[in-house]
């Protein structure tokens, strides 16, 4: 478009303009990439470098090379393994109910509703709160002696539960906060994907005599599959980072410990404790880097599963074109 007829000589001014046109796209992305490189990419890469050093919080400039020592210490560190186990169990008991509830809510929100905007905003309300605020409110509700939840359980004849000091109740408490905050958000994501499913497919299913449940099972769910995979990946990554909820459930040093006997200490929280209570920035960086590897693994495995299933689906369709 900018090319003029080759016979004509370009003036200097035109040449400059031409060069400017070539450079313009880079000028547009430059502000983003400069900031992004400095505060996004660089720290990530540098975390790996720091993890190979002994660095103390009191004097972060003094780094001494220790090779893989931080990693070998971590792999023998029972608190680290404990935190991984907790992260895993808390991750499962927060992600699974959350996504199932979200799917159900999305299905209901997809009906023709009076006040649908109201309901959509209402389910998203928890998303507007901060981890800190939500956790403090829930911590009050979960209190052993005065908490409303135990009062309520008492009404229906259940003995008070120690939601902080016992392992499973405390992990359930943490997961409840996570679930409360994120269910509505995921529901809206599912809802958006449901609305993108072509109506023709439902019509075809109805012609085949499918009832409501069969329609949900054979039209809605397959249509949502990419979105479900996406939310599983995002929630898993989110679960690996759970930090504020366990920190503030009891607060103070108990909070940093993830409970008196570390019964709900997550890996994110252990990283924080290692760096900012034990002053071991090098070891904390090693924890961060291991978390990064786990995330890469999770995303990689998920992607592999998706690819495998897609391939298999394609093969099935090819084999039985009638049913496709």
């Amino acid at each position: 478009m900018a090319v003029t007829s080759p016979a004509r000589l370009l003036t200097t001014r035109q040449l400059w303009r031409r060069r400017g046109t070539k450079a313009a796209p880079y000028a547009f992305i430059a502000p983003f990439f400069v900031m992004f490189a400095a505060f996004g990419l660089f720290p990530l890469v540098y975390t790996g470098y720091v993890s190979l050093h002994r660095v103390r919080l009191q004097n972060p400039d003094a780094m001494s090379w220790v090779g893989l020592d931080n990693y070998t210490t971590l792999l023998q560190d029972e608190f680290f393994w404990n935190s991984l186990k907790n992260t895993f169990t808390i991750g499962v008991i927060s992600t699974v109910p959350q996504l199932c509830l979200a799917l159900g809510l999305a299905h209901l929100l997809n009906y023709r509703l009076r006040g649908r905007t109201f309901f959509r905003v209402a389910v998203l309300l928890p998303y507007a709160t901060s981890v800190a605020a939500a956790t403090l409110v829930f911590a009050g509700l979960f209190g052993r002696d005065y908490g409303m939840l135990n009062w309520f359980l008492g009404l229906i004849g259940i003995d008070p539960v120690d939601w902080f000091n016992e392992k499973w109740p405390s992990q359930i408490a943490v997961s409840t906060i996570v679930t409360w905050r994120w269910t509505g958000y995921n529901a809206l994501i599912y809802l958006a994907a449901m609305q993108a499913i072509s109506y023709d497919r439902y019509e075809a299913a109805m012609l085949d005599g499918a009832n409501r449940w069969q329609q949900f099972r054979h039209v809605t769910l397959p249509g949502l599959r990419p979105t479900i995979v996406f939310t599983i990946i995002v929630s898993t990554i989110g679960a690996l980072q759970i930090f504020g909820e366990p920190l503030l459930l009891q607060g103070g040093t108990t909070g940093m410990n993830g409970g008196a006997s570390r019964q709900y200490q997550t890996t994110g929280l252990y990283m924080y404790q290692t760096g900012w209570q034990y002053f071991s920035l090098g070891k904390a960086a090693a924890i961060a880097w291991l978390m990064f590897l786990i995330i890469a693994l999770v995303v990689g495995v998920n992607a592999a599963i998706v690819r495998y299933r897609l391939k298999r689906a394609a093969a099935l369709t090819a084999a039985k074109p009638g049913k496709g």
């Binding site: 996004g40 660089f42 720290p43 990530l44 975390t47 660095v55 990283m271 960086a285 961060a288 990064f292």
Partner: peptide, 20 residues
């Protein structure tokens, strides 16, 4: 791709940077 990487993982260098 970096949307998948939690910013948490860069906190330590970030802290060292800000201290510096």
């Amino acid at each position: 791709a970096t949307m998948m990487i939690p910013p948490q993982l860069g906190l330590i260098p970030l802290y060292m940077m800000m201290a510096k």
